[in-house]
Amino acid sequence: MDNNAGMSLIVKTVTRILVGFILLYGIYIVLHGHISPGGGFAGGFIIALTYILFMLAFGKEEILKRVPQSRIPLLESIGALMFLTIAVLGFFGGYFFANWLPKGISFKLFSAGTIPISNIALAMLEVSLGLFGIFLVLVLLKFTPSKNGGKEN
């Protein structure tokens, strides 16, 4: 790829090492949302922030190559449908949004019924919202200076 895009070599190398760990931390926060502080809201945005870090370090072209823009609405739709499916499946337990799965033992990862699955569904929504923010910055602002540069100055 083009070496001039993005920041210097040191930043790129450190980013390449760190991105995986930050992504792992976000997934940890999502999965442990019912035990410790955090949850789908915070963890989803942390996952989205890894892509922003990637964008800032490597430039726009690299992330547009890795994450096609058409895949983000798909992710968001999957998240929303998953949340709605959890709600409808609550009719097995008697009513809408019933917590009908086995509850397990407290302070363990597999506990609290449908709450972890709802956390994952919400995290998908948040990731897609954060990526929408990135592409708002990338795609929408890309045309502006070239178009209005002559008119404004």
Partner: peptide
């Protein structure tokens, strides 16, 4: 319910309609 985090439990179990409405609004904004 065996949920340790009360905020998460309220958001996703007791008052899940809040989260559903929030997901709808996020979808509309996106």
């Amino acid at each position: 319910i065996h949920a340790t985090n009360l905020v998460s439990a309220i958001n996703l179990n007791f008052r899940a309609y809040d989260a559903l409405g929030e997901a709808t609004a996020l979808f509309a904004a996106a």
